[in-house]
């Protein structure tokens, strides 16, 4: 190899190295399907996102695996849903991560709805934060701003990119919200009672004027008591609710009992805990599916 060829190889290597340096990406590990989408939309080509919770996976039942811990350790930023969603493994995760890895519990940066003492059902019971903030578009807008600011803080070279992408995503969310309001307006306000398996739609209810009666609690692992099921059946009959929305996490015997006793039919399945296969592969698709299913079943 002559001097000329050697120079060429050096130049090529230098160019490759420089390009790689310029294209350095923020590595994000996400423990939320919705946050994965936000990170991809806002981060664009400047960010690589590893989704540790997959679409359709129940985040309430998620167990931290050694493989996921390695992926989180190799990232620059770990995104969590927050509001207690990761409570069962958060301490282990924080202990195991290197100090250079930033952990951002996005939900903790936005206002919460709470459940418990304020309802007067169980006096003395501690209030629990409702972690299902993604079922409100306005909360998701706030989450987008939190993620954008995190990227801006980590990567000052691409601030304009992050701001432009976030602005575009926020505009899409506002358009989605307008569509939801128009679709929900097809349903009389006195028919907006949403009976669901687990209590995941309080943020949705607050935004669009629904009343929620949930069979399970805030998580999918809380079995309903007989008294609670009886009360739900009585409420469905009293309100004349046409349809109820059950998930496969609910004991099938309870599902059958409620539909048989109340006379309400099954209204279809909803994406309660984030993105999922089918219509729910995107946030907009998930929301449109849920709203269409609810409105068409309750009309």
């Amino acid at each position: 190899m002559g001097l000329q060829s050697g120079c060429k190889v050096f130049c090529v290597c230098f160019l490759l190295f420089s390009t790689a340096k310029l294209q350095a990406q923020i590595k994000v590990a996400s423990f939320s399907t919705v946050l994965s989408e936000i990170a991809e939309k806002v981060g664009g080509k400047n960010v690589t996102v590893t989704s540790l919770i997959k679409p359709g996976q129940d985040p309430h039942e998620y167990q931290l695996t050694p493989g996921d811990l390695s992926a989180a350790s190799a990232s620059d930023l770990v995104l969590l849903s927050g509001k207690g969603m990761e409570a069962t493994y958060l301490v282990n995760l924080r202990d195991a991560l290197l100090k250079r890895v930033q952990v951002l519990a996005v939900g903790d940066q936005i206002p919460s709805l709470t459940k418990g003492a304020d309802e007067g059902k169980e006096p003395g019971k501690e209030e629990t934060e409702d972690p299902h903030w993604w079922n409100s578009i306005s909360e998701t807008e706030k989450a987008t701003v939190v993620v954008r600011d995190a990227f801006v803080h980590l990567d000052g070279q691409h601030i304009a990119d992050y701001q432009a992408s976030a602005t575009a995503y926020l505009a899409a969310l506002r358009e989605l919200d307008s569509w939801v309001k128009r679709k929900v307006a097809e349903l009389p306000r006195n028919q907006r009672t949403l009976v669901t398996s687990h209590d995941a739609f309080q943020y949705f209810a607050k935004d669009y004027g629904f009343q929620i009666d949930s069979i399970e609690g805030l998580t999918t692992d809380q079995e309903p008591s007989v008294g609670h099921v009886t009360a739900i059946i009585a409420e469905i009959k009293k309100q004349g609710v046409k349809a109820i929305f059950l998930e496969n996490t609910l004991n099938p015997k309870v599902s059958v009992e409620i539909t048989r006793e109340s006379g309400a039919r099954s209204g279809g399945s909803l994406y309660a805990d984030g993105l999922g296969p089918g219509d729910g592969e995107t946030y907009a698709g998930m929301f449109q599916h849920n709203v269409t299913t609810i409105v068409d079943a309750l009309k």
Binding site: P188, N190, Q191, K237, K238, Q239, G240, G263
Partner: peptide
């Protein structure tokens, strides 16, 4: 027979 609903309308 199902009880009549008490939805206000």
């Amino acid at each position: 027979p199902p009880e009549p609903p008490v939805v206000s309308s």
